[in-house]
Write a protein that binds this DNA or RNA. Structure first.
Lengths: 350, 350
DNA sequence: CTGAAAGCGCTAACAC
DNA sequence: GTGTTAGCGCTTTCAG
């Protein structure tokens, strides 16, 4: 039918293509939109018979609620934003994995924002929160200035994870990087090393600063002196680990051990040592940090500090959920345990 | 002031906390909301003087547009969904990196959906699209049945990347996995190996099937026979690479070369060989696939097929942008080049 | 237990 | 160049 008139045909087609709205379901089920909405939101408030009728209409029309409209009305999106400094770093992938897990268990969706360590991008992502596109935010990077963050925390739900900031009143979940740095360094000292080098992460991070602090404390506690020639700043990348180790080796300053602030740099360092003809662990003992998957499979296996990445993500999301529910803003801090995993690269095992 | 009355004070506080809306900006600037909206959407349509006034009101009130309302009105979210089978796999992180890059250049946001290879989760994510929460979708996994996908493609903008499906009319960006599989295997055959083993990816993937096909074709082209005892199905994980290599070695079937369907499994395989006292490449030549970061730093360096991961992401997003603009649905297919990278694990280099 | 109706905050067609 | 106004599709009082 309607074939005699193109206009009408087009109209008919449009109506087929057109999106099924709540009102359509309501009409088919002979109820009001309010009742349809109730069936979706609070089914127990609707008489069983009516509910069944509505549900079958929904099915029949293949109705999909417009979540945007719902969000606008409720002023809630059930979505959170995670700002990651670098999606390619497996440590962050694991943390995000944990966040995702807990989020989806609680019916929340996760938007990933990759800041690429660009501080301006980080500031940009704040707008996503301020424009109410998400209900909360987890920062895996905290380069922004404390004032901005403190202002933010007053109005919005924010959790900082992995990275942290002393002067910010946000909820945080971290590990004790100082203690872990001590643990790593002390392990090398106990093995008899007197000249322990260190390749730190970017010192703009508290996290890197603290691992570095731990390194220094361990050395001082041992009655030794911190030698600035044995300390290099890396960037948590393979290349930086490689390059800084070459730099250390070139300097001709003797050292028999190295604590790299993450496994990736430790692996870069060992590669550099090999190129240089320095054997690991015989000539150079190496300890890393993170316990990423490759650490166990690399040759030699990397002795490292394991941090509970997935758990960190889970906890961060839990904290965020709490803070999104609660009215008073929270500044809880959770500190997770790390532990030393001894493999071949430090020479403790034969 | 108002200190004499708690009620009022509370009221005042509320009004401060209250969200600034477009109407507030309009009133302060002495214009209508339409004009404010124009300043934000089509500034050139507004007289400069008015525009300046509006902009200064926006600044003064620190106004943040409610993007939800905008999206509802425009029926467009400027957000896309990327469904990833496994966020911890660096190949996917790189592709996502590329997608993210092109997306943000075009003012699109990316939501990451981690399906964890769970097909039900994949089906779940379809609803995000159907409920108009996102404008389009990139699938890095395509486990869903072709019928569902074909239905989907008719109504929504969908691009499949990395993985693919023969019978689906979606836009796709892939590499030639058959050709690449041939390339990898032929390289080993050219080095004189007669018994080349293969650890495939999960054979539910077309991608794995095709690399496997390539392997078989290369062997047959060489006039040799495909020996099913030398073929194992892996899961693209370190562990599966390790375990299946142990299985191969235990079978006592001789083989002098191995093509692993990804680098991670190649590394697992080499680890297994080491445990077994088999030297790589002297006793066993290994070729991987992907050219992940660790391949170059592992000892021995992994000979591998490099695939352009970031570019794949970029192209996928470009395709999606096109399809979201265009009315007619597109089924363009882009095939990107791969190339063999020779390192130590195959024994071609001394 | 159900319906009517008032918005959520914004955009865009139409009027001036 | 600017204002008026009608929605976008849903939820949630308030009545009945």
């Amino acid at each position: 039918m309607y074939t005699e008139c193109n206009r009408l045909q087009i109209k008919v087609r449009r109506e087929e293509d057109t999106i099924v709205k709540m009102i359509d379901v309501a009409q088919l089920a002979n109820v009001s939109t309010a009742t349809v909405s109730r069936v979706l939101q609070n089914p127990e408030e609707v008489k069983e018979e009516t509910r069944k009728r509505v549900l079958s209409s929904i099915k029949q029309l293949n109705y999909q609620p417009n979540v945007l409209a719902r969000h606008l009305r409720k002023n809630k999106t059930n979505t959170i934003l995670v700002v990651v400094p670098n999606i390619l770093n497996t440590v962050f992938s694991h943390i995000v994995g944990g966040i995702e897990h807990t989020a989806s268990k609680n019916n929340f969706r996760v938007i990933l924002g990759n800041s690429n360590k660009d501080i301006n991008k980080e500031y940009d992502f704040l707008n996503v929160l301020k424009q109410r596109q998400v209900d909360g935010m987890i920062l895996l990077s905290a380069q922004m200035d404390s004032d901005t963050l403190n202002e933010l925390v007053k109005e919005y739900s924010v959790v900082i994870a992995s990275e942290y900031k002393e002067s910010v009143n946000a909820a945080m979940v971290t590990i004790d990087n100082i203690k872990s740095g001590i643990m790593a360094t002390r392990h090398l000292l106990r093995l008899g090393h007197k000249q322990v080098a260190h390749i730190s992460g970017p010192l703009s991070n508290y996290l890197s600063k603290d691992r570095f602090k731990g390194y220094k404390q361990a050395i001082i506690q041992q009655g030794l002196e911190v030698d600035s020639d044995l300390i290099k700043e890396g960037a948590f990348t393979l290349e930086s680990g490689f390059d800084q180790t070459i730099a250390l080796l070139n300097s001709n300053k003797p050292f028999s051990a190295l604590f790299a602030a993450n496994d990736v740099m430790a692996i870069g360092a060992i590669k550099a040592a090999k190129v240089y003809g320095v054997r690991v662990p015989e000539d150079l003992a190496v300890v890393g940090f993170d316990n990423i998957g490759f650490s166990s499979v690399f040759d030699p296996g990397i002795t490292t500090i394991a941090q509970p990445m997935t758990e960190m993500g889970n906890k961060a999301m839990e904290l965020l959920l709490k803070s999104m529910k609660g009215t008073e803003y929270r500044k809880e801090r959770i500190m997770l345990q790390t532990n030393l995993i001894i493999r071949e690269s430090c020479g403790a095992k034969k």
